[in-house]
């Protein structure tokens, strides 16, 4: 299965046109802007920004697209395998901690309809079916025909030693590659694994603390240009559906 996915990705990559992706354009423009801003600052911080921004732009201009086909992550949660399994088994819970999932709706006990945010905020839809499960231990699923992408996912739950909770291992393969939808994420080489680690961290907070920590919507004083750039570039925040860069930029600047 893994082998097949990889072959398909390679083929998709070869068929790609040579023009630059929106992400790379973003990195080029954003990095360039940061560099210019840094140069105008004439301070040590400015120099650092200029260097950093320059490298982003350079990398964006020279980097080859590297499609990713899978995401893996693991986390230890202070809870029982039963509790975590049951939470996960209800797929409708997944968008509560997976930032890039818009909705999952149950069609029947084994089938569900998924909508995710693709690159540039474009929605991607697929239907999935559970193909294997062992209560409190394992769930695996795959997408059905007529889906926008092909997805194979599995999650395992194991008791950690000495009552330390539950170890969760998640592995998802998909094709064609989605990218990670964010220029900085690409630049920092924060691929799909990084995104999934953040998702699992939110799951941990939900289960252990009952809520996901946040500062979105809190008060703050006047923000500046640099903060706006940092908000747009934050690799943990997906670009929302149907938004243009200007609105996103404005929204992120308002964000705490």
């Amino acid at each position: 299965m893994a082998e097949n996915a990889r072959i398909r990705i390679t083929d998709a990559g070869r068929g790609r046109s040579r023009s630059m992706s929106p992400q790379r354009w973003g990195a080029l423009i954003g990095g360039g802007a940061l560099a210019i801003y840094g140069i105008t600052r004439r301070s040590p911080l400015g120099i650092a920004l200029a260097t950093g921004g320059g490298s982003v732009a350079l990398l964006a201009a020279t980097r080859k697209p590297s499609p990713e086909s899978s995401a893996s992550a693991t986390i230890l949660i202070n809870s029982t395998p039963q509790e975590v399994y049951q939470f996960w088994r209800d797929f409708e819970n997944l968008p509560r901690f997976m930032n890039r999932l818009e909705t999952v709706s149950k069609l029947n006990d084994r089938r569900s309809r998924w909508v995710a945010l693709g690159p540039g905020g474009k929605p991607i839809r697929w239907d999935a079916e559970i193909i294997n499960e062992r209560e409190n231990e394992h769930i695996s699923w795959h997408s059905l025909a007529d889906s926008d992408i092909q997805v194979d996912g599995r999650v395992d739950f194991r008791s950690a030693p000495a009552g330390r909770g539950t170890l969760i291992d998640v592995h998802i393969e998909y094709s064609p590659s989605l990218g990670t939808g964010n220029t900085l994420a690409n630049f920092l080489n924060k691929g799909a694994n990084f995104i999934m680690r953040q998702d699992l961290r939110r799951l941990e907070a939900m289960i252990e603390a009952g809520e996901i920590p946040t500062i979105e919507g809190q008060s703050h004083g006047r923000r500046d240009f640099l903060t706006g750039v940092m908000r747009v570039a934050d690799p943990t925040r997906p670009i929302p559906v149907r938004s243009n860069l200007k609105d996103t930029f404005a929204a992120r600047r308002r964000m705490a």
Binding site: N78, R197, E208
Partner: peptide, 25 residues
């Protein structure tokens, strides 16, 4: 800021709470 329920809070290592930093990364 501590959640009170994670591995670290349970061990009274409050300033190492795993769930209170939204920018953990």
């Amino acid at each position: 800021i501590a959640c009170g329920n994670c591995f670290f809070c349970k061990k009274q290592l409050w300033s190492l709470c795993n769930n209170s930093n939204p920018n953990y990364w």
